[in-house]
Design a protein around this nucleic acid. Structure first.
Lengths: 215, 215
DNA sequence: TGCATATAACTGACCGGTCAGTTATATTGG
DNA sequence: CCAATATAACTGACCGGTCAGTTATATGCA
C-alpha cells in the first residue's frame, strides 16, 4: 500500500461496462469478419477481438453465431427494405420518378461492399441454414419486392407504362443491378457502380425504351 | 471348412477397381453434398460415403477439397459457357435469333438446381477462396459474357437493335434471369422457371420493346 | 490353362489442429 | 456490498488430410 500523499498510480481499468454500445460494436465486427472469411469460416474469437471484447462476451448479448447473422440482417439490410417501402409509398403521385429514385438508391446501396455482403452471406449458407434464408426473404426481399410491384402496378393503372406482368417488370428492374453487384463484389470485375448516375441512366434507357430501333 | 462338393460360397469382393468411373462419381457426390450443406460445412467423409468409396480414396483422384470444387466448375458449368460461345459464333447470321436461343438455353440451365448450385457455391466462398472466384470468372463468366457481347455488337452493326453500351445490354439480358434463379433456388420463391417459354417471351418483350407506351 | 508375382486401387485408423459454446472467476460501479 | 459485466481457461466434438497396410486385378511364365 502506498504511503499517504504518494500519487496513486492511476492504472486505467482493464475493461469498462458499456452494455449499451456493445451490441452494435459486435455486429460491426461480425459483419466485417463474415464478409472477409465467409460465415462458416469466420471465427467467433476473431469477431470478439475485432469488437474489443472477449469471445464469451459476445454470448452475453447474442445466443449463437447464427443469431448474430440474423441480427445483422435486421440491423443492416431490413431498414433498407423498409426505406424502399417508404419511397414507394410516397411516390404514388409520381410512380416513374419514384422508380428512378428507388433504382438510384439501390445502386448506391449495392455498391457498398458492407451492404452487399449480407445477401452474399445468405446465398452462401441458404443450403444448410434454411431458416436464415427464410428470415431474409420475409424481412427483406418480400418487402422490397412487394413495394416495387405495387409501384409498377400504379404506373400501369395510370397508363404511364405498358400493361405487362408485374413480376416480369420487377425482374427487369432489379435483375441487372443485382447482377452487376455480384459481378463487382464476387468476381471483382470492373464495376459500373463507379459511376452510379450513368449506370442508372443506361438502365432506365433500356428498361423504358428497349433495345429495338424506334421507327 | 465346407466339405468337398459343397459349392464354394462366392462372397463378392468388398470393393472393385473402377478407376475410370470413380472421378465422375466423386464429382457427382461432391456436388450433391456441397449443394445440401454448403462447401465449408460439407464433410469429405460424407462425399466419400455418397460416392461409395472411402475418404482416403477421394484423395487418390483429387488432391484437396478445393480441387474438387474447381473440378466441379470445369465439369459442370464450363461446358455450358463454351456451348454459349458456340451458339453465339454460329449465330452471326441471325444475331437476334441466336440471342433468343441463348436466353432459352440459359433459362433451362438456370432452372436446374444442380447447375445453379455451382455459382451459388462460388458466391458463398469467394471471400475466403479468391482463387476459386477467379477461376470461375475466367473459365465461365468471362467466356459467356464475351460471346454475348460480341453477338450484341453484331446485332448493332447490322442495325437490328439500337446503339447502346454493350455492357449495359449484357446486364439487361442476363440480369433478370440470374435474379430469378437466385430467387428460385436460394429463397425458394414461386419460380417463373416453371414455364420457361413464357419467361423468355416476357423477358424479350421487355428487353426489346421496353416498358414505355408505344405511340 | 493355372499358378506366381507385381502393382494399382482401396481402406481403416489415426493425428494435429480448430472452434462454438461453457464455466469458474475477476472486476466494475452504483 | 452485490449485481451486472467481463474474461481466461477449458471442453467436447468435429474434420481435412495422411499413412501403413490390404485387396483386387493385370501380367508374366510354366
Amino acid at each position: 500500500m502506498p504511503p499517504l500523499g504518494t500519487p496513486v498510480q492511476k492504472t486505467p481499468p482493464r475493461w469498462r461496462r458499456r452494455a449499451e454500445s456493445r451490441p452494435d460494436e459486435i455486429l460491426d465486427a461480425a459483419l466485417a469478419e463474415f464478409t472477409e472469411r465467409g460465415f462458416d469460416a469466420a471465427r467467433m474469437e476473431d469477431v470478439a477481438k475485432r469488437a474489443g471484447i472477449s469471445k464469451a462476451g459476445i454470448y452475453l448479448y447474442f445466443p449463437s453465431k447464427t443469431a448474430l447473422l440474423e441480427a445483422l440482417i435486421e440491423a443492416k439490410v431490413a431498414p433498407l427494405a423498409r426505406q424502399a417501402e417508404g419511397i414507394a409509398a410516397a411516390g404514388e403521385a409520381d410512380p416513374l420518378g419514384a422508380l428512378r429514385l428507388l433504382a438510384t438508391a439501390a445502386a448506391y446501396r449495392l455498391s457498398d461492399p458492407m451492404v452487399i455482403a449480407v445477401p452474399r452471406l445468405v446465398i452462401g449458407i441458404s443450403g444448410h441454414y434454411p431458416d436464415i434464408a427464410h428470415y431474409y426473404r420475409t424481412h427483406v426481399v418480400d418487402i422490397a419486392r412487394t413495394a416495387l410491384e405495387r409501384l409498377i402496378e400504379t404506373a400501369m393503372a395510370r397508363t404511364l407504362i405498358r400493361r405487362i406482368d408485374p413480376a416480369a417488370a420487377v425482374r427487369a428492374f432489379i435483375g441487372p443491378l443485382f447482377f452487376e453487384a455480384m459481378w463487382t463484389h464476387v468476381l471483382r470485375g470492373e464495376s459500373a457502380f463507379a459511376n452510379p448516375e450513368k449506370l442508372i441512366e443506361q438502365h432506365f434507357d433500356i428498361l423504358l425504351n428497349g433495345l429495338e430501333l424506334r421507327a
